[in-house]
Design a protein around this nucleic acid. Structure first.
Lengths: 212, 212
DNA sequence: TAGCATACATACATGCATGTAACTATAATG
DNA sequence: CATTATAGTTACATGCATGTATGTATGCTA
């Protein structure tokens, strides 16, 4: 009984993406057939081939649902208050950690990082690289400002600080994503980040909001 | 003309593993057939099925060639000199970074992290997790000693220090492994690690071997 | 040196995933 | 209201990967 209304068609498209997210997540991208995705959405492969050209196209569409450039997080945080660049960056880190905890982000990033090898015209490494570079550029800018204000610890250049923070964030992210139930990335990861920021800031500007 | 000598058989086994490393590396595990591996080694699939039960078994054998527990690195470093726990750990980090640069390690770890989804009875995440846990336990022990000697910065617990260093190492590792030609993990990664150690150590024990 | 186990190659059967080509019914459009 | 584009389903052809079964020549052992 095909030819639904336009809204219904869009709904099945979303349903197919949801189904793909499910099946990709617990069987891996390579090991799941379009048939399985279709059946999981209560459709047939025909529906999949109607909305997407092939598996790669479907995969690409999946990722479009979770883009989160780091620069936007910073803007979002800056909107609220007029804090120092270091504090702003720290808060942006916390927001990004919080976002990771949402199932939607967690599952799709897990698919991107752990559950797909590069295949046909899709290269997950390039996508990860692109995200990482955007993040690094933004960090550099923030740390440069902090450095100009003399807020960084001695001997600490903005570039090194950026690399250090990005590495720590990335490592935290990977450790957590590998086994998300082992620890909370918001509380424990947040604590690690706070510690790093405390170490990175200039000793003079001690205003620690720590345990009593 | 089958039935080679025992040594020759062992050689073809190695050749098959080498071939698997090659093909896995540039086509991904899921997208390579046992046929391709066999042909790349100048054999047929019969040889593969003689030496290994299936692809998972072959994959598992591949990883056996690169095990490198972090604790062994520490022991190795401790062997030479009688440095402080902090300095010992720092050197162990450098050694591990240097090891990553070797093509054999780089390629196989790249296969483990980027070029295989979990499949059948092989779970790369568990393997990564196991490695990470071993590393974390060793870091904890070293930082506990450093803490007992008052060598850590104030407010820095051994557990947090361990998490921080492990995250940074892991992030560095992932960033580099994703695009190994973008930077040298030994020089630039080493610099990040050195910076972190400088920040983590107690301000009193300043003995920095830095640029003049 | 007869015979057996080894170290493969070859052949075969099966299944599954893909892509495309009809086929169909209905919503949108004029 | 007739037509057309849409939103699918079903059927079909193809190819490839796997696993196993069988063949086979050779090294080893008694």
């Amino acid at each position: 009984m095909p030819r639904r209304t336009k809204a219904e068609a869009a709904a099945t498209r979303e349903a197919l993406l949801d189904a793909a997210e499910d099946v990709f997540f617990d069987k891996g991208v390579a090991r799941t057939s379009l048939e399985q995705i279709a059946r999981h959405a209560g459709m047939t492969r025909g529906a999949v081939y109607w909305h997407f050209r092939n598996k790669a196209d479907l995969f690409h569409a999946l990722l479009e649902r979770v883009r989160m450039p780091f620069a936007e997080l910073v803007d979002e945080v800056e909107q609220g208050s007029e804090a120092s660049p270091l504090e702003t960056t720290r808060l942006a880190c916390h927001v990004s950690l919080k976002r990771l905890e949402q199932p939607r982000y967690r599952r799709i990033l897990s698919i991107l990082v752990h559950r797909c090898e590069f295949f046909s015209d899709i290269n997950p490494l390039e996508m990860q690289d692109q995200l990482a570079n955007e993040c690094f550029a933004e960090l550099c800018e923030q740390f440069r400002r902090a450095h100009d204000q003399g807020a960084l610890a001695p001997h600490l250049t903005p570039e090194t600080a950026s690399r250090l923070l990005q590495s720590t964030l990335g490592g935290l992210f990977h450790d957590w994503l590998r086994m998300p139930d082992r620890f909370s990335i918001v509380t424990e990861g947040g604590h690690v980040i706070d510690t790093l920021f405390e170490l990175m800031q200039h000793p003079s500007s001690e205003e620690s909001s720590h345990q009593p």
